[in-house]
Structures are given as C-alpha cells and as structure tokens.
Amino acid sequence: MLIRLENDHFHTVEDRFTAVDDDAALTGDGAVLLSLTRFEADGAALLAAGRDVGVRIGPADRIEALAPVLPSLALVALEFPKYRDGRAYSSAVLLRERYGFDGEVRAVGDVQIDQAWNMVRCGFDAFETTVGPNAWAAAARRYRHVYQASADNRAPAFVERARVVRDAVATVG
C-alpha cells in the first residue's frame, strides 16, 4: 500500500510509478522508478522523452550524486533495509533542506508505524507500508509539540514559547 501526505492529509493512492529492475527492458510510456545505476544509464533519454522518472536510493548511496538532476525528478525513493537503519532520514532532510527538492520523497523497505513521525518530520511525504492511512496519520501526529527544527517546518518548542511571550507583550502594550 502507498500512503501519500498531501495538504496535511494522509490518504492511500495507487502507485503510478512502475519499478524497473536494472536488467529489465523499458516498456510503455508511464512513470518509472529506477535504481541510481539504471538512472545514470537511461535517465537522460527517459526524461528527454517526457517520462516521469523516480530514482531509488540505497542507504549507502550519496544523495549528493542526485543534486544536479533533482529538478527533473518526480520522485526520490529512500530505502530502509531495516527499520533500525536511519541513514535515509538524513538523506530526506538534505533533499528538502539543502536541495529544496519539492517532488515526492518516498519511504520504502522496512517501514513501520513507529517511524511515522520521524519520517514525516524529516520530509517524507509518501510511505510504502502495510499500515492503514488512519493509523499512520495518528502515529505521525502523536506528538503535539516538537523540540527541534526539521524539514517539516513545524514550529519547535522554542518558537512556540517565544510566540507566547510576544503575544503577552502585545497584550500588555
């Protein structure tokens, strides 16, 4: 199942991307999801043909390698080989914060409900999981406050607190 986060709303969607193995033939004219290796070989041609292209990044792949082509990508899928492997969180943050990528960032692999809030906070907006969208949404929103700035642009506690002070000062003024 694929859950998308759009306009603050979690819902199930059909996956419009077809995953293409490195040695499989490219057919049809729909959106495709490729490994970094396959993308380096065939990506330019596919993009030139007007196809929507996504790239699947392994945890050891350097996200920096994608930087030059990010504006033309529709999707970056980040792999969690085991849910304890947290490298993809940094990749997602870099995609959003450093490279300003505004396409889909998808979590694939071992995607468990207990990671929902980490993923959303780090900028993921698509989740390949067996968890239903309502349960996923509840887990992602479990924490009413956050302590630190991250890629989801939620106001951290220190901003909330400063706002309270500012409002109080405004009231007095």
């Binding site: 947290g86 969180y89 990671q115 302590y147 506690a157």
Partner: peptide, 13 residues
C-alpha cells in the same frame, strides 16, 4: 536535552 529528545533524524543512529 530538548534538542536531542525525539530528534527525528537521529533516533536510529
């Protein structure tokens, strides 16, 4: 303490 509590990027080091 605050910064590191539920840090979304650094929970699975």
């Amino acid at each position: 303490r605050q910064w590191s509590t539920f840090h979304p990027e650094f929970t699975y080091l």
